[in-house]
């Protein structure tokens, strides 16, 4: 059981950090993709959506290559930090950021596109600068999108298997996460433990989906019926 708690801790740390980092860097990226007139977005949107359709093992394979000290990125990392990315928690985190990115930015792009430009113009003329508008208008108006994007990112990171297997390996306390542990238990015919993990993940995911449903039912006061 101790082993499982350590594994759970690694999984939650990975999913939590991934969600947090994507919230910080993915939010402005989604804003740019939703609002920019630049032709660059026509390439960036499909490129960043690729992890949605590619087999996870494909991404894992390329990440593994990139992490290897024979390649520029892996070599540079080794040079700066003195550790290899492959089969490390940091490598796993980088991989998670790549494959969970679309799960964060797609709902955010949708949420941002729904904010009428006239509202932002009105706020500008009232004297609200960019950061002011972001805090007082953009964030509250995309609250639903933010919560959905965060929940999807967290649960998706928690459940990813293919990429983790390729780049993370199975080091307890470092890269061993729930989905891998479950696979191990099944392989070793330890069905009791497998049930515990699987049912736990089902329960958690169900709660998350109910949460999304509940948020999406317009708790932000954007629906006049709900307010009257």
């Amino acid at each position: 059981m101790d082993q499982d708690l350590i594994t759970l801790g690694t999984s939650i740390r990975l999913a939590g950090l991934t969600t947090l980092i994507l919230a910080v860097f993915g939010t402005p990226l989604a804003w740019w993709l939703a609002r920019s007139q630049s032709a660059l977005t026509a390439i960036c949107i499909p490129l960043l959506a690729l992890p949605l359709v590619l087999p996870p093992t494909v991404i894992g394979f390329y990440l593994l290559l990139a992490f290897s000290p024979q390649h520029f990125f892996g070599a540079a990392w080794l040079n700066w930090f003195g550790t290899s990315l492959a089969f490390s928690f940091e490598g796993l985190l980088l991989g998670s950021l790549v494959y969970s990115l679309p799960f964060y930015i797609q709902p955010m792009i949708v949420a941002f596109k729904e904010i009428p430009a006239a509202l932002l113009d009105a706020a500008s003329t009232l004297g609200a600068g960019w950061f002011d508008r972001f805090l007082t208008l953009i964030l509250p108006l995309s609250k639903n999108g933010l919560l959905i994007a965060g929940t999807l990112t967290f649960t998706h990171t928690l459940g990813e298997f293919g990429i983790v297997l390729m780049i993370g390996g199975n080091i307890p306390g470092e890269t061993r996460v729930l989905s891998i542990a479950l696979f191990d238990y099944v392989e070793t015919l330890n069905y009791d433990k497998a049930h515990l993990l699987a049912a736990g993940l089902v329960g958690f995911s169900l709660v998350a989906m109910i949460l999304i449903q509940w948020i999406a039912k317009d708790r932000a006061g954007l629906n006049p019926e709900a307010r009257r």
């Binding site: 509202l119 932000a220 006061g221």
Partner: peptide, 8 residues
Amino acid sequence: QHQQLFPH
């Protein structure tokens, strides 16, 4: 002409 009040 149209809606410009902050809805939230």
